[in-house]
Nucleic acid binder design. Structure first.
Lengths: 300, 300
DNA sequence: CGTGCAGTTTGTCTAGGACATTATGACAGG
DNA sequence: CCTGTCATAATGTCCTAGACAAACTGCACG
């Protein structure tokens, strides 16, 4: 077995912890303690990178680095239960069925997973499929990931296949037009699944969706909104996005946007932040649907 | 008009130039010269960020920063013609039609674009559609971007819509099984379009594709390949991926992978690197198709 | 006209320090 | 027993400046 080592840049890429943070932790907490190569450059072992990844994940859930680093590795895996209070995300009665779906991913049966999902889609209809299957499933996958019962690559496969399902469903819908909603994420936010769920629900209600994919620079969002005569700009923030930066970013975007264009921000990343002037926060899919209904009501 | 300013982290996100590089350039070349806020932190103007983005793009094409920074802004835009030698990517006779497609994006008519593409797909069949339409179109969009005749958000829309088309096409194909090909990109590489084109062509030839999306950590690729009993791991590198790192990364992955699993690396990012032991390089879609044919021939 | 070497260019790493921001926990008051 | 306020501790991000390896250039020589 070859022992992979990582230089500091590779660790940054793989864990999402910046070089500054890695060096700071070493200085302050004495962890991690990488080897050094001939030039004095840090060389991290795969073990340490694994632990760092886990720590990062737990931090995204609200834990504090000082504590995590002091905790022995074995206990870390058990630390998940610092969930957000208001997340009864998975209605109990559906849990077993969802677990079956996840098991398909775990057994690496991509084809079977897709088929099972198609079946559910046909049975539930698109709206309920998104709200009662895809959304709780994504939550559950996140939880499984945290507890280490799902491999990273399994989560990748799940995400990719599920995105395909949603995009396919969206394409099959007739093109809507009111309101015109521009959907994207800010630079640094790569998660698209939540945005796709929202797009699906919006499209179902007759909205005209303009999907820009992920990571559109702030200025470009403004230009795009004007060019497409959008009524709404909808952004999505995952739990992994640095929550502290969100209010400032929203404010900056709000200022660069014509006043008549509404700004909506959704995703579990906004659950933890306060209301901002001129921005509509929608931490759940439900609230997003309600927001659209409200828009329709006020633009008759 | 509100003047947005960027701190150094925002510039890093938006341009892809690391903080270290930004500070180094300032020290060495005297550019950029950001303002400072009350704490002495750098504040970049939108102008400077624009210029930096352009410089980054030209560097990805092979230009050198020292020269670029010495060149006045107006001349930068004209510098595109340092293309890779072997890229007659766009057959002349098709160019006008492709430009019409791009014009649809430029006029922000997403629906019309999709329709036109669907039509071409029906006319050409999937294989020729990918090779003669999507691939040259993507090249052409890249060129337009470089020359500043296409906005960033327009390129985003193009990419997102085109990805949908391809994924939809892939889903509609019968599931293949030989060889089993695991497709993904390494951490840091976010571009998926090229990989989707390859997947489409592979699936057309009866391969069993396992799409993991983008940015799978090295170790995870190995685990995934074993878990899925893949015959081949196929990676894609765009021109924006730091070419210098590619050989080392491939080697590292190769070592962590069972010998009987082949490793294929494609995309314009590999056009500039040398052959590596145990890795098959395929800088064009053509060569990818040939590689698959060769695989079939040698596994009868 | 190729080939190899020396010089130059460029990026990435190192170290430690400063400071703004956010969370914690103790304490006071209802 | 709950709630709000504040000092203190914890944490991340930025700063400067220096060192060095790797990649590229261009020249001299065969």
């Amino acid at each position: 077995m070859n022992t992979l080592t990582y230089n500091i840049a590779a660790v940054e890429r793989d864990t999402g912890l910046s070089k500054d943070v890695l060096r700071m932790w070493e200085r302050r907490y004495g962890f991690p303690t990488p080897e050094r190569d001939g030039n004095g450059d840090r060389l991290y072992s795969a073990d340490q990178v694994d632990r760092l990844r886990l720590i990062k994940r737990l931090m995204d859930l609200g834990h504090r680095p000082g504590k995590l680093i002091a905790t022995p590795y074995e206990e870390l895996a058990a630390l998940a239960p610092r969930r957000m209070a208001a997340s009864p995300a998975v209605p109990e009665e559906h849990a077993p069925e969802l677990d079956e779906l996840i098991d398909l991913v775990r057994r690496h049966e991509g084809g079977a997973y897709l088929q099972a999902m198609q079946q559910r889609l046909a049975r539930q209809g698109l709206q309920r499929f998104v709200q009662d299957t895809v959304s709780p499933l994504a939550h559950r996958v996140g939880e499984a990931w945290e507890q280490g019962t799902l491999e990273v690559f399994e989560e990748h496969l799940f995400t990719e296949l599920t995105k395909r399902l949603l995009r396919q469903s969206i394409t099959s819908l007739p093109a809507g037009n009111r309101p015109r909603i521009l959907l994207t994420t800010l630079p640094g936010e790569q998660h698209l699944l939540g945005l796709l769920m929202a797009e699906t629900l919006f499209a179902l209600e007759g909205a005209g969706c303009i999907p820009l994919g992920t990571q559109t620079p702030l200025l470009e969002i403004g230009r795009a909104a004007s060019a497409h005569q959008a009524d709404v700009v909808a952004l999505s923030f995952s739990a992994a996005f640095p929550a502290r930066q969100i209010p400032a970013l929203l404010l900056q975007l709000r200022m660069g946007l014509p006043g008549e264009i509404e700004l909506w921000a959704g995703g579990s990343g906004v659950a933890r932040i306060d209301d901002t002037d001129g921005v509509l926060l929608m931490p759940t899919l439900d609230s997003a649907v309600r927001a659209l209904a409200a828009w329709h009501a006020s633009h008759t």
